[in-house]
């Protein structure tokens, strides 16, 4: 059987190289992460996140809102400013669905050509201006990928400095993993034609982030 033959070849090639304590050797390699990742002190985690998320390469926009209750009004303003139809594909998460969405048509899953979706990010990463989404029964994947306009809510307190912090926050063991963890940094882009950067390749063309400051 191929499995055993492949592993046997690998073990033979590595006979004299294998570490005696693999876990300790692996941990030692990443013991000092600040040496090899982009640090940004004295800039605050919030300022770094906003600076990166709105940078030329990430292309999102960020707006502070005082509380979740202020979200529907803020979304209404976005829809009006962009002259969109008042239809929202709303992530079916209680904290979002229990808000007052009167005046909008809300649906709980995205259609193929959905215009706009509102979803909650479980965390954000300041280093790169990224948002972190974990799948759950009330957090399907496609809501983050199908719409043209992706409106994301994130709590200011859940902005973490680095990707490693997000791993620690949600757990690094096999059991702690959800079906998927999407780290999304801005809008869908491509450079496949003459390396020219263009937005809205397959996923969202616009990303607007509501940062809840409570």
């Amino acid at each position: 059987m191929s499995r055993d033959a492949i592993l046997r070849k690998i073990d033979n090639a590595n006979a004299v190289r294998m570490s005696s304590d693999v876990a300790a050797a692996a941990a030692a390699l990443i013991a000092e992460p600040d040496g090899y990742r982009a640090t940004f002190a004295p800039q605050s985690v919030y300022d770094r996140f906003v600076a990166k998320a709105t940078s030329e390469t990430v292309t999102a926009t960020v707006e502070d809102i005082a509380s979740l209750e202020a979200l529907p009004e803020a979304v209404a303003a976005y829809i009006a400013n962009n002259e969109l139809v008042p239809r929202i594909a709303l992530q079916p998460r209680d904290s979002l669905t229990e808000l007052n969405w009167s005046g909008f048509e809300t649906v709980d899953q995205a259609q193929m050509n959905e215009t706009l979706a509102v979803t909650f990010a479980d965390a954000a990463i300041a280093e790169t201006g990224s948002l972190v989404f974990r799948t759950a029964p009330d957090a399907p994947v496609l809501l983050n990928f199908l719409p043209l306009h992706h409106l994301v809510v994130v709590r200011r307190s859940s902005i973490l400095p680095h990707m490693e912090d997000a791993f620690d926050h949600f757990g690094t063991t096999a059991d702690a993993q959800r079906r998927s963890l999407n780290v999304i940094t801005g809008t869908s882009g491509t450079a496949d034609i003459e390396a020219k950067n263009v937005r809205g390749a397959h996923g969202p063309r616009f990303m607007h982030i509501y940062c809840v400051t409570d």
Partner: peptide, 12 residues
């Protein structure tokens, strides 16, 4: 770029 737009960790 500092990171790709979409980085996904899949589990089962």
């Amino acid at each position: 770029t500092e990171i790709t737009q979409y980085t996904t960790f899949f589990n089962g």
